[in-house]
Design a protein around this nucleic acid. Structure first.
Lengths: 210, 210
DNA sequence: GCCATATTGACACTCAGTGCCATCTCCGGC
DNA sequence: GCCGGAGATGGCACTGAGTGTCAATATGGC
């Protein structure tokens, strides 16, 4: 390994910061905890915190990891003959498992995000990036032009709408519901839309777009 | 009228604040403009600004108005025999028209929101509230239980995914595309999902949810 | 004219986030 | 073993968003 020691020290600081932050935030709520309290609990300086996280929201949102990258990676390795609904269901399942898989902390983090407007806003912004990445991967997979054809953007949005509903249901059930079953059920509903590429409207069904 | 004069003075201040803010923000970008610059241009005090808007983001996002309320109102007055896809398409069209209808300012505001992470985050948070309101209205319309049945939440999310794609295309075309045609085209794709309520999965198709 | 109410402006304050610089530690070259 | 560069850290000062408080002013009804 090139620089294993410095790299691991960095990871150690980040983990401790995340641990201290999640503990405080889950107990007192997001806006009731200041960055000073977090860094005091973690034993580092205030300035160091902002070298690891761009904002106070990032400590929570970054905990969920790079789910967007995971979804695109899964979509890329799905067999080419799979219909979009199946490939997208597997891609979304990767993120769902990442959310629900960890330990009890995952549920608390998800509930914290869904219940805090500032955190929800940041999360949704990140989710919008996932949609764009998914749309690009889908356009590549189906050999569609991502700028002229609205289907990839729309299909990615529909798949993430299913993701939203699954996360909402799982959070509402206090983690007792089976994420895989919820995902299957949601995709059963949206599958007809995801597989409806190119059938009813070729270039344009009706309208005045030049 | 009860208090027409004071009410109209209040509206006057708010309009002037919005006008000054949009002018500055469109010209210099969101984070390059401080609240002090806005209030100086509008001729009021800094404290007054935060009595009209909860945050700097709110000046921009509130400009789009209460589109969520408009969508739900339209959904409520659609004939009961209309399939969900048609009723939701008309509901979404109300917001699309509200976005694209005004003057040139609408396009600049939309492009500003879609291009500024902080504004996009706030907009998406507001959009999440629209989805919840739409889901409640849809559950009432179809006489479904909004807590046990995932369909209303999912259908509202799918309809707003279509909304996102239409807004994205319209913004990308510099306002030259016809919003109604884009909306029709998007809903042609998602309609099979919106009208698939209760057919394939009654209580649950497969899984282990208690 | 007088009082209740609402709006505003001014000031002080907390807190998020950033730039800058001094310090320390690690690591490779000599 | 010593030295010099690179990266990580801490401290400090600063800008800017957002809030609480209070006094001054304007409105509207009596």
């Amino acid at each position: 390994m090139a620089t294993p020691l410095a790299q691991r020290k960095r990871q150690l600081v980040q983990d401790e910061l995340t641990r201290a932050a999640l503990g405080l935030l889950a107990g007192k709520g997001f806006e009731a905890v200041t960055v000073d309290e977090i860094v005091t609990a973690a034993g580092v300086s205030r300035r160091t915190f902002f070298r690891y996280f761009a904002s106070k929201e990032d400590v929570v949102v970054q905990f969920l990891g790079d789910m967007g990258t995971g979804m695109c990676a899964e979509l890329a390795i799905r067999p080419a003959h799979e219909p979009p609904s199946v490939a997208l269901r597997h891609a979304v399942s990767v993120s769902i498992d990442a959310c629900a898989g960890h330990d009890d902390r995952s549920l608390r983090v998800v509930r914290l995000i869904l219940g805090t407007p500032a955190l929800l806003a940041r999360f949704l912004e990140r989710r919008a990036h996932w949609r764009d990445e998914l749309a690009a991967a889908l356009a590549h997979r189906l050999r569609l032009d991502p700028v002229t054809d609205p289907y990839p953007h729309l299909a990615a949005g529909v798949a993430l709408a299913a993701f939203d509903t699954v996360l909402h249901q799982w959070s509402g059930s206090n983690g007792t519901a089976d994420p895989a079953a919820l995902t299957d059920r949601a995709f059963t509903v949206v599958a007809p839309a995801l597989d409806a590429v190119g059938q009813p409207c070729g270039p344009l069904s009706a309208g005045s777009v030049p």
